[in-house]
Design a protein around this nucleic acid. Structure first.
Lengths: 192, 192
DNA sequence: TCTCTTGTCTAGCACTGCTAGGATCGGGTC
DNA sequence: GACCCGATCCTAGCAGTGCTAGACAAGAGA
């Protein structure tokens, strides 16, 4: 059985290579540049190999999204762990979120804007996505205020952050005063 | 000169037809279905005619965005005009905004998500876009609170609405409790 | 009526995501 | 060690995309 095991290992490694390369290409040149031909060339295989791992380009985006969600959750937890008190935690969380969106716009898009064929906000939502939301909930739940459902509060706060992140990057909001908008959001929305 | 005038009139009419048809197609089947071939077929001209009016598909999206922005501004003003007092005005504004995003998702995307080649948040930003923001500012400026810049407050509130609208439509937020999130946003962000 | 500009269309380019079918490589068996 | 056969991979191609060069026809002005 060791031959088959080796083959499966190699196959898994190649799958990781595909996802990592897709992400790299997307971060370097945007998702438009991630074509199946270019991706195949970079991993030094022919196009059809991609389709033996994924149903199509959509599923590759989905795989990048799952990777990114894991990373985002870790970044949020790392930021809040170093902060003292609810107020500082919320600030740290919001800054870390916007920071991630700015540093990894392609991955952020894969998670929150593009169609990766993943189910969201359902029972069968993949664990990394649920966990990213959980990371938000951990710090935001404690500042929801009396009588306000922590989950719904987290959703609302998150939506506001998402709006800031996407509108700023799309050039719809001027890049100046980002910090100010973030402070307004935290001061008004969170019950501290 | 009347011959030339007639030609220019016809040309302008055809340009409006292109934009209206693109919008119709996008609202019916999504922007992916708006291909230059399909669009040309619907207006009963050949593809190259499109390029005698617009530099490319991007500019057509931009034209739909400008149309939509005018419409959105009118919808926001109509909603707030019928409301009494700042609190009711903000509610009416927020509801009208989310309502427009839900009823005209393709147009909403053209304005706020897709690349239509338009300059935003600058001096040379087209009037319809500036006016849509002005419509937001008219109702939101009065609830910014003391010492808070009305423009920046409007941007922040708008970003939050945008986040709710896009995340909900992309399936990232469950469709239930939309009203509740909106109320939370208004109650916490606006100083009433 | 003829000419020449203006406007329109046909045909084609380089690219996209995706797939059918043939070639080749390598593990398992005799 | 030689052979068979299945798994694996690649070449070639499909239908579609945005966009454009160049041929062609229609119509205004002389």
């Amino acid at each position: 059985m060791s031959v088959q095991e080796r083959k499966e290992r190699e196959r898994a490694a190649r799958e990781r290579l595909i996802v990592a390369t897709a992400r790299e290409l997307a971060e370097q040149q945007g998702w438009d540049a991630v074509t199946t031909r270019r991706l195949a060339e970079r991993i030094e295989y022919s196009q059809p190999v991609l389709y033996s791992h994924f149903r199509g380009k959509r599923e590759i985006i989905g795989a990048v999204a799952l990777d990114g969600a894991t990373e985002l959750a870790a970044a949020l937890r790392a930021a809040t762990a170093a902060a003292d008190g609810p107020r500082e935690r919320v600030y740290a969380l919001a800054r870390a979120y916007l920071d991630y969106a700015e540093r990894h716009p392609a991955v952020y898009d894969a998670i929150f804007q593009l169609d990766g064929g993943l189910p969201y906000a359902q029972e069968d939502t993949p664990a990394p996505l649920k966990d990213a939301f959980a990371a938000l909930l951990e710090s935001l739940g404690e500042v929801a205020g009396d009588g306000v459902h922590p989950g719904l509060f987290t959703e609302t706060f998150w939506a506001a952050l998402h709006g800031l992140a996407t509108l700023t990057r799309a050039g719809r909001l001027p890049p100046q005063h980002t910090e100010w908008r973030l402070e307004l959001l935290v001061n008004r929305l969170a019950v501290l």
